[in-house]
């Protein structure tokens, strides 16, 4: 059964549409990275998911059922800004979680506390930003959740603990959990996730399996001795997303069958021809319409 399913979710604030007809499924034992620029609707999506904001339309189901109090026995949520009590200590938070959650695993919590080197007696008010995040993560993972929703789970952590968070996500997925997490760091998504969903202005602009996207999305670059010849058939090729031509050089952005397309271009007898792999960052920037400088000709990425 799908761990988490968002169907046609729309959230409007007055005339502003924060999330626009969003559908995303997260399967068990799978990690979906939610990417998007600031203000693209990621946090609003999380709020609607968790019942912290009421969706204007659409639905959210967790393991096939709508959100209900019992859901939180197996669903853990780490918000971008942790909701901890400033006047309580680290261990008081653990004690509160032990009482609140049926599945709370005290041994696991102690283990995680040690992993993040959190001082049990310290007041939350005296914790650093990274330690705040770490404590929220300890509380989330201590219930051994089957569904995890993490909003920027590594923010404020040093590179070593960022890696720890990724390991926790990977470990949870290997144990069968479905994970949805947002991050501004594409490198983190690239490691921990197997799928991505990209939001832009509240709309889903790209979704899919990361390795499949990387395998499909390429740039075919050709340089000719004279002006680039017309290529009307390639312009209408279903796998050619767009063509950029400038003088003697042409770039064809493909979303599959790049070797076939390169073959068609080769038939026009260019001076040189190359197929360049796109990184996830290139693919992401392309999807949100912020293409960086195109890679120079002939340079392998």
């Amino acid at each position: 059964m799908t761990a988490l399913s968002i169907k046609h979710l729309t959230k409007r604030y007055g005339s502003f549409t924060a999330v626009d007809d969003l559908s995303v499924d997260v399967e068990p034992a799978s990690v979906c990275g939610l990417l998007g620029p600031n203000g693209s609707g990621k946090s609003t999506t999380f709020k609607c998911l968790l019942g912290l904001a009421r969706a204007t339309s659409g639905s959210v189901t967790i393991e096939g059922a709508p959100l209900q109090p019992g859901t939180f026995d197996y669903l853990a949520y780490v918000p971008e800004k942790s909701a901890l009590y400033e006047w309580m200590t680290v261990e008081q938070h653990l004690e509160m979680a032990r009482r609140a959650y049926r599945k709370y695993d005290a041994a696991r919590a102690r283990e995680l506390l040690a992993t993040f080197k959190l001082p049990p007696k310290k007041l939350v008010r005296r914790l650093s930003k990274g330690q705040h995040t770490a404590l929220a993560l300890v509380l989330a993972f201590a219930i051994r959740p089957r569904v995890l929703v993490l909003d920027e789970p590594a923010s404020g952590l040093d590179p070593i603990f960022q890696r720890t968070v990724l390991d926790l996500i990977i470990d949870a997925a290997a144990g069968g959990a479905g994970v949805l997490f947002s991050s501004h760091q594409i490198g983190q998504v690239e490691r921990a996730a197997d799928r991505i969903a990209v939001l832009r202005e509240g709309k889903l602009v790209l979704a899919g399996d990361i390795d499949t996207l990387k395998g499909d999305e390429k740039i075919v670059i050709a340089a000719f001795d004279a002006l680039v010849p017309e290529m009307p058939e390639l312009a209408h090729d279903p796998n050619v997303r767009r063509i950029e031509r400038g003088g003697r050089i042409v770039r064809l952005y493909t979303d599959g069958e790049s070797e076939r397309i390169a073959g068609r271009v080769a038939a026009l007898q260019p001076r040189s021809l190359d197929v360049v792999d796109l990184t996830l960052e290139d693919i992401f920037l392309g999807a949100v319409g912020e293409d960086g400088a195109a890679p120079p000709i002939g340079v392998e990425s």
Partner: peptide, 18 residues
């Protein structure tokens, strides 16, 4: 195992399984 290699490389387990 898939899990130990996934954790060893810090890579998604489904990717290793594939």
């Amino acid at each position: 195992t898939v899990k130990s290699l996934a954790l060893g490389l810090t890579v998604n387990p489904n990717t290793i399984a594939r």
